[in-house]
Amino acid sequence: MKIVLAYSGGLDTSVALHWLKERYNAEVVAFCADIGQIESLETVRERAVRTGASEVFVEPLTDRYLNDFALPALRSHARYENKYLVAAPLSRPLIAQRMVEIAHEVGADAVAHGATGKGNDQVRFFTSVTALDPGLKVLAPVIDWELRTREEELDYARKHGIQVSVGKENPYSIDTNIWGTSIECGELDDITLAPPARAWQLTNSPQQAPDQPRQVTIGFESGHPVTLDGEKLGLTELVTRLNAVAAQHGVGRVDIVESRIVGFKTRGIYEAPAATLLMAAHEELEAIVLDRETLHHKQGMAARYAELVYYGYWFSDLRRAMDAFTDSLQGPVTGEVTLELYKGSFAIAGRRSPFSRYSGALATYEAGDTFNHQAGAGFAYVWSLPLTRPAAGGQV
Rank of each mutant, 00 (worst) to 15 (best):
L94P: 04
Y305F: 13
V15C: 12
G263P: 02
V106R: 02
L362Q: 11
M322N: 06
E146L: 07
G219R: 02
K118A: 14
K159S: 13
V382K: 10
P273W: 09
E284C: 15
A380P: 07
T217K: 03
L278A: 08
P213Y: 06
T127M: 07
L132H: 00
A73V: 08
R241K: 10
H18S: 10
L278W: 10
A321Y: 06
A306F: 01
A349R: 05
A197T: 10
G331H: 10
V4N: 05
G268L: 13
K118T: 15
M1I: 08
Q248R: 14
L139I: 05
P134Y: 07
G10W: 07
H113T: 10
P93T: 01
A324R: 06
A87K: 01
K2C: 05
L90V: 00
I348L: 11
S182V: 13
P332N: 11
I191L: 08
G219Y: 00
L238K: 01
S359L: 08
G107M: 00
L385E: 11
E105Q: 07
T334N: 02
E42S: 14
D63Q: 11
G167K: 12
V254S: 11
L290E: 13
P171A: 12
G393M: 00
R64P: 01
G263Q: 07
M279R: 13
C32A: 12
V337Q: 03
K232D: 14
G335N: 01
